[in-house]
Amino acid sequence: MIKTAPATTASARIRGAFSEGRLTWSGLSLTVFSILVYLFLYVPIVILVIFSFTRDEFGVRWTGFTFDWYIRLFNNPRMMGAAWNTLVVATVSTIVSTIIGTMLAMAMERYRFRGRNAMEGLIYLPIVVPEIVMAVALLAFSAIIFDVIRMVTGEVLRRNLATVTIGHIAFSISFVVVVVRTSLKNFDRRLEEAAADLGADSWNIFWRITFPLILPGIIGGALLAFTLSLDDFIISLFLSGPGTSLLPVEVYNRVRRAITPEINAISTLMLLLSMALVALSQLLQRRR
C-alpha cells in the first residue's frame, strides 16, 4: 500500500495537468486562442500610442519620432479647455453621486420599507436603459425647464456644464449604489452591536466603525463614478452646450473630420489616466 502510493500521486498529477488543460491539444489551442484575443485587445491600443509620436501628419504611418503633437496639444486652448471642463464635471459628479449613492445604499441595505422594490427598480433602471435614451430624455427635459425659466424670469439659459453634470450624476448614482451595497453586505453587523455594547451611540458607531470599514467600497464606487464621467460621451454630447465642450465630445468632433496625430496624443493621455485609475482601484482592493 505504502509502496504504491508515490506512483498513484504521480499519475494523479499527470491527470491533473491534463485536466487543467496544459498538455492536451484542447488546452494548447485554448492558450493560443486566448493569446490571440489579448493581441486583438491590445494591438490597436499600442498602435494608437505609437502613432502619437509619428511625424506623419495624418497619424497613420510611421515616418519618424516627434513630440510635436503633444506640444501642440498643450498649446491648443480648445482642447485644454475641454480637458479642464471634463475634470471639473467628473469631480463634481463624483462627489455628489458618491454621497447620494452611499446614502441610498445604506437605506436599501439597512431598512425594510414599503415601496422598497419600486425603489430597487428605480435605482437599477439607469444601468439598463440605453444611454442614448437617457441622453435625449435629459435633453428634452432641460429644454422644457429652460422654456419655463424663460417664461417666468425672462432669462435665456443654454445647456452648460451644470446640465452635463446633472446627467452624469443621474447615471453614476446607480453604479455607486451597486458597489457600496456589496461592501455593506460583506460588513459584519455584529461589529456595530459590539460598539453599542461598549458604549458608542449611533453617531460614534457610524463614524468610528461602519464608515471606516465600508470606506474601500465607497472609494471604489467613487473611482467608478469618476471614470464613468471621464469616459462618458453620449450624455456629454447631448447635454453640453456651445463653448462648454467636454474632452470626449471635442475628440469626437475632430475625429469625424479627419485623423490627426494630435488626437492620437490626447487619446494616449486619456488611456494613461484610465490605467492609473485601474491601478488605484486594484491597489485599494488589495489593501482590503
Binding site: L48, D231, F233
Partner: peptide
C-alpha cells in the same frame, strides 16, 4: 475602464 471613443478611434 478605457474611454470607448478612444478605443474605437484606434481602429480608424
Amino acid at each position: 475602464w478605457t474611454n470607448f471613443l478612444v478605443r474605437i478611434y484606434a481602429w480608424q
